[in-house]
Every structure is written in structure tokens, then in C-alpha cells.
Nucleic acid binder design. Structure first.
Lengths: 148, 148
DNA sequence: TCGTAATCTGACGTGAACGTAAGAAAGAGC
DNA sequence: GCTCTTTCTTACGTTCACGTCAGATTACGA
């Protein structure tokens, strides 16, 4: 189907290690494309690379554990369905709508977390600004010209 | 001097555990106020509570390790000096300026990290918005009225 | 002074997220 | 078919950031 790649290439493309990819599969965060008999090489697509990148990003930016991440992405399975099932002509409108709703809820959960994080960051930023200003004032009082 | 408190109260006030406070001292992130002979109770001030809160926040929001946090806060010692030495009348203007400059550099390092994080968050947010919009469009194409 | 709660030190335990090593097997290129 | 790199499975090791336990000590309040 799509240009198929092996685990090493995926790791390099996603900026991580082979072990991490396998580990994510172990804990159910990832599944190699296509059925695979134990022992044979795992095969992936570009989409998988994107997924790995996204997992790493969410983990880092939102500071969630891989367990929480699994919950957060639970409905992401729907995203896979969206590619495999959604495109099929024999998928009903009703079914498609359900898939889309799942995907929507999924995205919205992530957005909520992003919003919370952003609010916290803003607060921190405001306090840092304040401290910065205070220090500049004190320097000024000393008759010193601050750097910038 | 200031209203003095013990480790349990500090932990409660900062929303963490006694063990964490001791651990932070172990790795040099924190120092109990005043000289202390081994075995006697650690004593803290309100300022220490703020410091612990800040440490927890930076760790969480910026996603840095405690080691990195120590580097990041290195010059924070200057902040303590700022309270003890800065207020002394026998501290020269030149010395005060130096202390302030240290504090300034310190704050600015933190601000830089906050900025980077914010930029990353913004990027993530933009992509989520896009996905959200795409899903809504598809739902619309199906003639379904999305929730909200 | 005495009882009791909180804290002390020291040490070992734990969960998450991988790292690493060994030996076998797979698969791409010639 | 053969070589050589890459991947496979299994399993134990490691680091970080604390948790937990034991026994001794401290200090506050009656």
C-alpha cells in the first residue's frame, strides 16, 4: 500500500529509538501496520511516523504519563478506522458520523489539556515579567543602566 | 526572625510530601533556613514554601529534570543573598548591582524557556484547531449537525 | 517532667520509561 | 545461495523521583 518502512527508519524519522517504538507497542500505544507473525520484521507507514512524533510531543508538552496518554488517545483508534473503514464505500453514513464524533471528542480532550497548560504558562510568565520589572526598577534606583 | 515552620507544615502548604522536601535538600535544590545540627528539626520560612511551590511548578510546566532545574536556578542563591546581604547597610552599591544582575539573568533564563514552551504549545494548538475544523467540515458534509 | 506527636537518619523498595546484551532469525543485495 | 546488516524475542539492568519502614531523637504542650 503505502511506502513501507522498518523500525529503524521510523525511529530515526521520529527522533527516537527503536526500543521506544517497541515499548510503545508493548503498552498498547502503537501497533505495527498489517498483521505480523511473531519473529518477522515490523512494518510501518509514514502515518505511523507522524503518530510517534505526536505521542512524543503530547507526552512532553502536556506532561502526561504514557498511561494517561493511552487514555487520552483511546479514541484515536477511530482515526485508524477513519482511514481504513471510512473510505470504504460500504460504510454507512451513520457509521461515518459516529467515527467522526469519536475523533472530535478525542481532539477536544486534547485541546482542553492544551488550554489548561497554556493558562498555567501564562500565569508563570506574568510572574516572571513582574520579577523582571522589579529587578530593573531596583537597578535603576541604583543609577545603573541595565543591559537592554 | 520570620514565623518559623517545620517540614510537615511546609509540605502541606506547598502541596507535596515531607519526603520530597528532604529529597530536594539531598540533591541541593533546597536548604533549611539557619544552621542546623544533624538530628534537630529543620526549620523553614514562608519564603521557603514559595520556593518549593515554584520548584514544583517549573518542573511540571517546563518539563525539566531536577538536575536541569538546579542549573536553571543556580543563581537563585543570589535571591537569598538579596534578602540577607542586600538589605545590609554595609553592602556597596557595586555589590548590590552585581546581585541584581545575577537575579536578572536568572529570571531571563526562565523566561526564555517559558517562551519556547509557549511557542510549542501554540503550534500544537494550531494543529488541533485544524483537525477540529476538518472533522466539523466532514460532519457537515454528511449533513449532520455537530454537537455545538 | 513526662507523654505524645512530629521529625530525624539510614537504608532499602518502587514504578515509569526506557537501555542493553545475547543469541537467533529475517531480509536486502550480490 | 550466501553474506551482512537489521530486526527479532527474552530478559535483566538502570535512572529518576520519590515511597516506605525501623528505630532513635526531638520538641511542644499539659
Amino acid at each position: 500500500m503505502t511506502a513501507t518502512m522498518r523500525i529503524g527508519e521510523v525511529a530515526r524519522a521520529a527522533g527516537t529509538t527503536v526500543r521506544t517504538i517497541r515499548y510503545y507497542e508493548e503498552i498498547g500505544l502503537l501497533t505495527a501496520a498489517g498483521d505480523r507473525v511473531s519473529g518477522s520484521h515490523r512494518l510501518y507507514t509514514e502515518t505511523d511516523v507522524d503518530r510517534v512524533k505526536e505521542l512524543l510531543r503530547l507526552k512532553d508538552l502536556l506532561g502526561v504519563s504514557l498511561d494517561e496518554l493511552r487514555e487520552l488517545i483511546a479514541a484515536e483508534e477511530a482515526r485508524t478506522l477513519l482511514r481504513e473503514e471510512f473510505r470504504s464505500d460500504r460504510t454507512s453514513s451513520r457509521r461515518r458520523a459516529a467515527i467522526l464524533r469519536e475523533a472530535l471528542a478525542n481532539v477536544q480532550r486534547q485541546q482542553a489539556l492544551v488550554e489548561r497548560r497554556r493558562a498555567q504558562l501564562d500565569e508563570l510568565d506574568a510572574e516572571l515579567q513582574e520579577r523582571n520589572a522589579l529587578i530593573l526598577t531596583r537597578l535603576d534606583e541604583l543609577g545603573v543602566t541595565p543591559v537592554r
